[in-house]
């Protein structure tokens, strides 16, 4: 480890931290979640109403409870999507790679009413 290594690693760490901060600054409470399979929107569920929804023909089960969405069932071997916990703020995403499925939080505030459905 020389001085240039500390400089390089320090710069990378700062840049990564700044990027992380920037991605979190715009965060606000979401209004709904969009379910995508291979990039195609399959369904939208409001975060305001509690419910349990089978996704993608039953490969995954999404639960919405107290304004938060989490995956409670998945037929893949690793269950990463379930381990990721609950999401509630815009841009937060749960990913199930084996099923090519993502759940992303969108909207909130004023446009909330339009999203329900």
């Amino acid at each position: 480890m020389k001085k240039r290594d500390f400089l390089l690693i320090g710069t990378i760490l700062l840049a990564a931290a700044a990027l992380l901060l920037a991605s979190r600054l715009g965060k606000r409470a979401g209004g709904a979640v969009v379910v995508r399979v291979e990039g195609k929107e399959q369904a939208t569920y409001s975060l305001a109403a509690d419910g349990t929804y089978p996704l993608n023909g039953g490969t995954n089960v999404l639960e919405i409870k107290e304004g938060k969405a989490r995956m409670i069932e998945a037929n893949c071997p690793d269950h990463y999507c379930m381990n990721q916990g609950a999401i509630a703020n815009t841009n937060e995403t749960i990913t199930c790679l084996p099923n090519k499925l993502t759940v992303t939080v969108v909207g909130g505030g004023d446009d909330f009413v339009e999203i329900v459905g």
Binding site: A16, L19, N91, E92, T93, T95, T102, T104
Partner: peptide, 19 residues
């Protein structure tokens, strides 16, 4: 997955932890 949020949501976290 064709979901852009992977770059805006996951990648910054992964860059910090990866470093």
């Amino acid at each position: 997955t064709d979901t852009a949020q992977l770059f805006t949501y996951y990648l910054p976290m992964l860059l910090v932890s990866g470093t």
